[in-house]
C-alpha cells in the first residue's frame, strides 16, 4: 500500500464495515405462533444451540430487534398484530418466514388462515418445511447473515429496490375468481367492498 498506515488502522468501505457489524449482531424477534415455535425453541436449546452462529439474543420486544422470525401460521386475528410488530421494529430490519404456513398457508387452506405473510409484509428469507428442522433454520440465519453482508448499504438503499411485498397480491386472480363465483355471492355475507379494500392505496 502506497500510503503508510499507523498500526491498528485498516481501510474499508463504510458499507462493508456496517454490514460486517450488522450481520454478526442479528437480534431475532421470535414471532412464534404454532408448531414452528417449538422448533425455533429447539434451535435455541441444548442440542442445536443457535448461539454458535451469533443470533441467539432473542428479544421479545420489537423495539430491540432487527430480525423478525415468523414461526407458524398467521391467522386473520393475528395478522394486524404481526403488522404492528413489523412497524415497531427499527430500521434496518429483516424478516425470515419460517415454515410452510408462514410462507404460503401450508396445509391450512381455510377461511381463517392468511395464505402467506409475504402478501402483507416484506419477507427476506423463506424456510420451507412443516416444520423446518432446526438445521434448516440455522442455515437460514447463516444465509441471512451472508445476504446482509452481500447486499447491505449504510443508508438502506437495497430496501428501496424491492419495495412491495414479494408475495402474490392478496386478491390475486384465482382468489377473485373463486370469491366471485356466483354460487358464493348468492349465499350472501360477502360484500364486494372487501375485494377492493384489500389492495387499497398500495396498488402498485
Amino acid at each position: 500500500m502506497a500510503v503508510g498506515l499507523p498500526e491498528n488502522i485498516f481501510i474499508t468501505k463504510l458499507d462493508a464495515a456496517a454490514n460486517w457489524a450488522r450481520s454478526n449482531s442479528l437480534w431475532p424477534m421470535p414471532f412464534a405462533t404454532a408448531c414452528c415455535g417449538i422448533e425455533l425453541m429447539a434451535t435455541a436449546a441444548s442440542r442445536h444451540d443457535l448461539a454458535r452462529f451469533g443470533a441467539e439474543v432473542m428479544r421479545f420486544s420489537p423495539r430491540q430487534c432487527d430480525l423478525l422470525i415468523v414461526a407458524g401460521r398467521v391467522v386473520m386475528k393475528m395478522l394486524p398484530v404481526l403488522q404492528r410488530i413489523w412497524l415497531q421494529m427499527p430500521e434496518p430490519k429483516w424478516c425470515i418466514s419460517m415454515g410452510a404456513c408462514a410462507c404460503s398457508g401450508g396445509v391450512f387452506d381455510t377461511y381463517a388462515v392468511v395464505q402467506g405473510i409475504d402478501r402483507f409484509i416484506p419477507v427476506d428469507m423463506y424456510v420451507p418445511g412443516c416444520p423446518p428442522r432446526p438445521e434448516q433454520l440455522l442455515q437460514a440465519v447463516m444465509d441471512m447473515q451472508a445476504k446482509v453482508r452481500r447486499t447491505g448499504t449504510v443508508m438502506g438503499r437495497e430496501f428501496a429496490i424491492r419495495d412491495m411485498p414479494a408475495g402474490p397480491a392478496p386478491f390475486d386472480s384465482d382468489e377473485r375468481y373463486r370469491i366471485e363465483d356466483t354460487r358464493l355471492v348468492q349465499l350472501g355475507g360477502f360484500s364486494a367492498a372487501a375485494t377492493s379494500a384489500g389492495r387499497g392505496a398500495t396498488q402498485g
Partner: peptide, 25 residues
C-alpha cells in the same frame, strides 16, 4: 364458519388487510 353453506376457503375475509411496503414501514 362451521355451517355447511359456508365455503372451506371463506369468502375473502382472510385477505382483507392493508399491505405494508418497505417504504411505508
Amino acid at each position: 364458519p362451521l355451517r355447511k353453506d359456508y365455503p372451506l376457503k371463506g369468502r375473502g375475509e382472510r385477505h382483507n388487510f392493508p399491505v405494508i411496503t418497505r417504504s411505508g414501514s
